[in-house]
């Protein structure tokens, strides 16, 4: 259950990414991309984010999660393919020596600031 830890990391990264004049309380949305391979329970992550956002200064924000499908490249035939299920076999040559090139990791992708605050 590493969703609490991830929520804390998201808040830290979001704070570091804010322009100097913008306060975290004016952030309305924090968007992250999560690879399907990461086995993050997105509902739990949102729950954890909501649980810590007030004490972290992001009380007016909501966490938006987009998931990223798993893409691999075959080490044998060099062709790429998307995984529909966790069977890491190349559909072209049936090799199981493949590397994941997308669908792993948690990335902060966008922060939205409330318009009326930024107009000041």
């Amino acid at each position: 259950m590493h969703e609490l830890y991830l929520a804390e990391c998201i808040v830290k990264q979001a704070r570091a990414a804010l322009p100097q004049r913008v306060h975290s309380i004016n952030v309305s949305e924090v968007k992250v991309r999560i690879g399907e391979l990461d086995a993050v329970v997105t509902d739990t992550l949102v729950f954890m984010y909501d649980a810590i956002k007030s004490e972290s200064g992001f009380a007016n924000s909501r966490l938006v999660i987009e998931t990223e499908a798993i893409f691999c490249i075959c080490n044998e035939c060099a062709k790429s393919f998307e995984l529909a299920e966790p069977l890491f076999m190349c559909p072209h040559c049936l090799s199981t020596s493949v590397r994941v090139v997308r669908g792993r990791g948690v990335t902060l992708t966008e922060i939205t600031i409330q318009e009326k605050e930024t107009a000041e």
Partner: peptide, 14 residues
């Protein structure tokens, strides 16, 4: 205003 970011959430840990 939307601020695009590309940053690894586990940057500090890594």
């Amino acid at each position: 205003m939307k601020i695009p970011v590309v940053s690894n959430v586990l940057e500090e840990s890594d």
